[in-house]
């Protein structure tokens, strides 16, 4: 079993885990009851994807760690989520833009991953794809409504895009782990996904009367364990109970 395979699976898992953690904080605080349900729906789906991927990662790792031990007891640098996922919730514009950018990426990625030589990943991707198609529908609907709503909502969306766009560089910046997965026919070349993602994002932003930013040149690499300050607080809440009561069953 390759270290690259484990890292790749953890990247997918942790992106979903951290996203779920952030969305979970919003339930009960959304702009409407309906959006509480919509955000909870996305949170539950990505949490479910995280759990499947973490369980798989634990098996690949071969140290007997299960989904919870991986989720709750790693050190910050060992989490390999995309930096995009750990950007703060901010206002609803930030939440929706973050979600949309990730949804559009997962939409293309899972489509390809269904054909992976790794049967486990292929199966997880097939299931996740159905969920992602709904998430993308939901988030892109909101991007359009907020982009083309009021001057205030338009302004907030521009600010959110501005803040989050730099972190999209990481989505398609292939490194040694990605290359290993390409070589093993486990995962698609990010260069294959990039134009599809751009086209989809462009179409929605255009309908939303929002400007399409230039491709982000330099990003931060959450997928290599580099995290921001907010991430520390996210982990503190996530990990608290298991750290405070080590070894207990819940």
């Amino acid at each position: 079993m390759s270290a690259a395979r484990l890292a790749y699976v953890l990247r997918l898992a942790d992106t979903n885990l951290i996203l779920a953690q952030q969305l979970g904080a919003l339930v009960g605080h959304a702009p409407s009851i309906e959006e509480d349900l919509g955000l909870a729906n996305t949170a539950l789906d990505v949490l479910g994807q995280a759990r499947l991927l973490l369980s798989y990662a634990g098996e690949l790792e071969g140290l007997g760690r299960d989904e919870d031990q991986l989720a709750f007891v790693r050190d910050p640098a060992d989490y390999l989520n995309l930096a995009l996922a750990e950007q703060p919730n901010g206002d609803f514009a930030h939440t929706i833009v973050r979600q949309f950018l990730i949804d559009a990426w997962q939409r293309e990625l899972y489509e390809e991953l269904q054909r992976s030589q790794d049967e486990r990943l292929a199966a997880i991707a097939a299931k996740a794809l159905k969920e992602t198609r709904f998430h993308l529908r939901y988030s892109s609907g909101w991007v359009v409504r907020l982009g083309d709503g009021t001057p205030d909502s338009h302004g907030r969306m521009c600010a959110a895009l501005d803040a989050l766009w730099p972190f999209t560089a990481e989505l398609f910046d292939a490194d040694a782990v990605d290359q290993a997965m390409i070589d093993e026919a486990v995962a698609p070349d990010p260069a294959l996904i990039a134009p599809r993602w751009r086209a989809r994002v462009q179409a929605v932003l255009s309908e939303a009367t929002l400007p399409m930013p230039e491709p982000a040149r330099f990003g931060w690499y959450g997928k290599r364990g580099q995290h921001n300050e907010h991430f520390g607080h996210v982990l503190a809440e996530l990990q608290f109970m298991q750290r405070a009561y080590p070894g207990a069953r819940w």
Binding site: S32, E34, L37, G38, N41, F134, R137, Y138, G141, R145
Partner: peptide
Amino acid sequence: SVHATDARMALEHARDLYTR
């Protein structure tokens, strides 16, 4: 019933509210 501003939103809300 659901509250929504357009049909697409109404469908998504209905799906989340009534078909979980």
